[in-house]
Simulated scan of single mutants.
Amino acid sequence: MIYRFRIILDTEEDVFRDIEIEQDTTLEQFHNVITQSFGFDGTEMASFYVSDEQWNQGEEISLFDMSEGNQPVRLMNETTLSDVANESSPRLIYVYDFLNMWTFLVELAEVAEYENGREYPNIMYIHGQIPDQAPEKEFVADDEYNEDDDNDDFIDFDEYGDLGFDENWN
């Protein structure tokens, strides 16, 4: 089967790509197709996130294992599109370059049959140009922080001398 995805850059202007790709393609291969279709060199860190109907970020599927063995991590090269996207769960979030946070909304639009003579992956449609800089993101905490709250976990970094670090640690 062929998956037809719309990949939308999370920005004010309409910037998206429509891509046909085989369902058994790994997320690493899909990552390469996405970066190439948007004109990135593909050398930055990236992750996919399983998403729900409201585009809430769920389980991470990472390009590389950065966990240092602390807990199991799903990797792109071990996960196929059919493992994470289907008609009942069609949404993924894709983040490329964690310093700039290029964020894409990836939605499975259709599952289709192979077309003889067509090569996959196939970029069906290109709309819009990538901006020079990643769109600004506003990150808001769930709970507002109040300095006056009695919070034993709060560290005043202006008083870092009291933390007991050895200044010649290296």
Rank of each mutant, 00 (worst) to 15 (best):
M1R: 10
I2P: 02
Y3W: 10
R4L: 15
F5P: 07
F5L: 14
I8D: 03
D10L: 11
T11Y: 04
T11A: 14
T11M: 05
E12V: 09
E13S: 15
D14F: 04
V15N: 11
V15W: 12
F16Q: 05
F16S: 08
F16M: 10
F16W: 11
F16R: 09
R17N: 02
I19H: 04
I19R: 04
E20W: 05
E20D: 15
Q23K: 13
D24G: 00
D24W: 00
T25A: 02
L27D: 11
L27Y: 01
H31R: 09
T35Q: 14
Q36T: 06
S37Q: 07
F38P: 01
F38T: 02
F38E: 02
G39Q: 14
F40S: 06
F40Q: 03
D41E: 14
T43E: 13
E44S: 14
A46E: 01
F48H: 04
F48M: 00
V50D: 08
S51G: 14
E53I: 14
Q54R: 04
W55C: 04
W55D: 14
W55L: 12
Q57S: 12
G58I: 07
G58N: 03
I61R: 00
L63I: 07
D65N: 08
D65W: 03
D65F: 04
D65I: 06
M66C: 08
S67G: 01
S67I: 15
S67P: 09
E68R: 10
N70C: 00
N70P: 00
Q71T: 04
Q71L: 04
P72K: 08
V73A: 00
M76H: 13
N77I: 15
E78F: 00
T79D: 02
T80M: 11
L81A: 08
D83T: 12
D83V: 13
S89T: 10
P90D: 06
L92G: 07
L92Q: 05
L92C: 10
V95T: 15
V95F: 06
D97C: 11
F98I: 12
F98K: 04
F98T: 06
L99I: 11
N100W: 13
N100M: 12
M101V: 01
W102C: 01
W102N: 02
T103L: 04
F104M: 03
L105G: 10
L105E: 13
E110N: 14
V111H: 01
V111W: 01
E113T: 09
E115A: 10
E115T: 15
N116S: 13
G117E: 11
R118Q: 11
E119V: 11
M124D: 03
Y125G: 00
Y125M: 06
Q129E: 15
Q129F: 13
P131E: 04
D132H: 07
D132Y: 09
D132Q: 09
Q133I: 02
P135D: 08
P135N: 08
V140K: 12
V140A: 06
V140W: 02
A141M: 09
D142Y: 11
D143H: 10
E144R: 05
Y145R: 02
E147T: 00
D148N: 15
D149F: 01
D149P: 05
D150V: 08
D150C: 03
N151D: 15
N151V: 15
D153L: 06
D153R: 04
F154C: 08
F154T: 05
I155W: 07
I155H: 08
D158L: 03
E159R: 14
Y160K: 10
L163I: 01
F165W: 15
D166V: 02
D166I: 12
E167M: 09
E167W: 12
N168V: 11
W169H: 09
